[in-house]
Amino acid sequence: MPSLHYTGVRHHADTSMVLVLGLTALVFFYDSVIAVCQTWRTTNGTARGQHRDDRSKAA
């Protein structure tokens, strides 16, 4: 009787692929957080030197 399961395929053979996909997801998440934080800093005027420019203009 035919089955949908492939015979002779080891289940633990996918471990390396899962590890690679997990690390890729972790790097993607980390880069996304950095991009959001940089955008937030830029749009809120807290980028480097921004406060110094505001203080010199006010004086």
Rank of each mutant, 00 (worst) to 15 (best):
M1A: 09
M1I: 09
P2S: 04
S3M: 06
S3G: 14
S3C: 05
S3V: 02
S3W: 03
L4A: 07
L4H: 02
L4V: 07
H5A: 03
H5D: 05
H5M: 02
H5Y: 00
Y6K: 01
Y6V: 03
Y6R: 01
T7S: 06
T7F: 05
T7Q: 11
G8R: 05
G8I: 03
V9H: 06
V9Q: 07
V9Y: 04
R10H: 04
R10Y: 01
R10S: 13
H11D: 07
H11T: 14
H12Y: 09
A13G: 06
A13F: 11
A13S: 11
A13E: 10
D14A: 15
D14M: 13
D14V: 13
D14E: 10
T15Y: 11
S16Q: 06
M17R: 14
M17V: 08
V18G: 00
L19V: 15
V20Q: 05
V20T: 07
L21N: 07
L21Y: 00
G22C: 04
G22Y: 00
G22Q: 03
L23I: 13
L23M: 12
T24L: 14
T24R: 06
T24V: 13
T24E: 05
T24S: 15
A25W: 07
A25K: 06
L26R: 02
L26G: 04
L26T: 13
L26E: 01
L26I: 10
V27T: 10
V27K: 01
V27S: 11
V27F: 07
F28I: 13
F28P: 01
F28S: 09
F29G: 00
Y30T: 14
D31W: 12
D31M: 06
S32N: 07
S32T: 14
S32C: 00
V33R: 12
V33E: 02
I34N: 12
I34A: 09
I34Q: 12
I34M: 14
A35M: 00
V36R: 15
V36I: 15
C37Q: 14
C37L: 15
C37S: 14
Q38V: 09
Q38T: 04
Q38S: 06
T39I: 08
T39D: 11
T39L: 11
W40I: 11
W40H: 07
W40N: 05
W40S: 12
W40E: 00
R41M: 15
R41L: 15
R41H: 11
T42A: 12
T42Q: 15
T42F: 08
T42M: 09
T42V: 03
T43M: 02
N44Q: 12
N44K: 07
G45R: 03
G45T: 05
T46L: 13
T46E: 15
T46Y: 09
T46A: 04
T46P: 00
A47R: 09
A47T: 04
A47F: 06
A47Y: 03
R48C: 03
R48V: 08
G49L: 00
G49I: 04
G49P: 01
G49Q: 03
G49F: 02
G49K: 00
Q50T: 09
Q50C: 05
H51C: 01
H51I: 05
R52D: 08
R52K: 12
D53T: 10
D53Y: 06
D54V: 10
D54E: 09
R55V: 09
R55C: 00
S56N: 12
S56H: 13
S56Q: 12
K57C: 01
A58I: 08
A58T: 06
A58W: 08
A59R: 15
A59I: 08
A59E: 11
